[in-house]
Design a protein around this nucleic acid. Structure first.
Lengths: 165, 165
DNA sequence: TATCTAATGTTATATCATAACAGTCAAGAG
DNA sequence: CTCTTGACTGTTATGATATAACATTAGATA
């Protein structure tokens, strides 16, 4: 699953490129430092692995890579690191894919939405303050106190839409 | 999991009451008839089971009930019926809970959003045409052709919010 | 009736996730 | 400096969710 190679090359512009990845990692580190978080080797490496991937990775895919590099080889190793990253806003969980992806702007508080390509499985993070605001209001109207939300869209990314046409 | 009893009684007004359930089932049947769908005994009973439940049910919970009534006792029996209902708009899948819930207005084409209570696990279906329209537009702006979307909010339902206060 | 297709059922297995506990290590208290 | 403490990492084991593949049955129809 989640091979994610794509005939046309990058389909996930935000994550692509080692330079981008380094920049995001640096931001994440600064963010951790500032917040007193311990970005330990496994956690840091897990974040790097997510950044190196185009698209989202399943926990067991992350685990495979960690294990190959001498970290623990059992599921909790990956899940703990991933959950840590998600809790602290350095990564996101993509529920529809049972997968995880690095956050592209880890310093800002934000709610994320994802656009998932049905064809190449690319995952694009979109910022959707206005959507979540609207949702918070709509929920409030029926007395529901919204705390978190999952917004995931499925369809065709620009590359695949072009090819399909 | 998903005990869903609630100290204050109903927390999922749309599904509550046998009369409501019957009405929705009737709508679903009419919808199936009109669309040439085969609402077979397992499928029909699966829908009833979802309607009888307050909140969402996991596939294995549905399976348990089906098996107890003489239907097949293996996972595919439940998954097939549930997937059929979801595909034809008679039920929805709630990803965050790995669960399914009957659609409360099966006749209309619609995109649904769910408000999931963290405390009592109630699931309320909300209609969110404006949200999905906004999302379709936002996606379109980056060249993404949106086909389906999952919108799920987590927080406190009105009953639980009141109690927590 | 013979045939075809959709639906149901079964076995087996894949995939995703966590509980529970043991060992490790760094930072602060004495 | 050493001991305690708490957070982190690691392991074993198991639970929970989901599907592939194939056999069987039931309805429609030629």
């Amino acid at each position: 699953m989640t091979d994610h190679s794509h005939p046309a090359g990058f389909c996930c512009p935000d994550h692509s490129g080692a330079a981008q990845a380094r920049a995001i990692l640096a931001q994440a580190e600064a963010h951790a430092q500032a917040g007193g978080l311990r970005l330990t080797p496994v956690r840091r490496r897990t974040l790097e692995i997510l950044l190196e991937a185009h698209g989202a990775l399943g926990a067991y895919e992350v685990l495979e890579r960690l294990a190959a590099e001498g970290y623990g080889a059992q599921p909790p190793v990956a899940y703990r690191a991933l959950n840590f990253l998600v809790e602290h806003g350095l990564a996101h969980r993509v529920r529809r894919l049972n997968a995880f992806t690095a956050c592209v702007h880890p310093t800002q508080e934000h709610r994320a939405a994802f656009l998932i390509c049905d064809r190449c499985e690319s995952v694009t993070e979109a910022s959707v303050e206005s959507l979540t605001r609207a949702m918070t209001e709509a929920a409030g109207a029926v007395g529901f106190k919204l705390e978190r939300s999952t917004i995931e869209g499925v369809g065709l990314c620009s590359v695949c839409a072009g090819e399909a046409a």
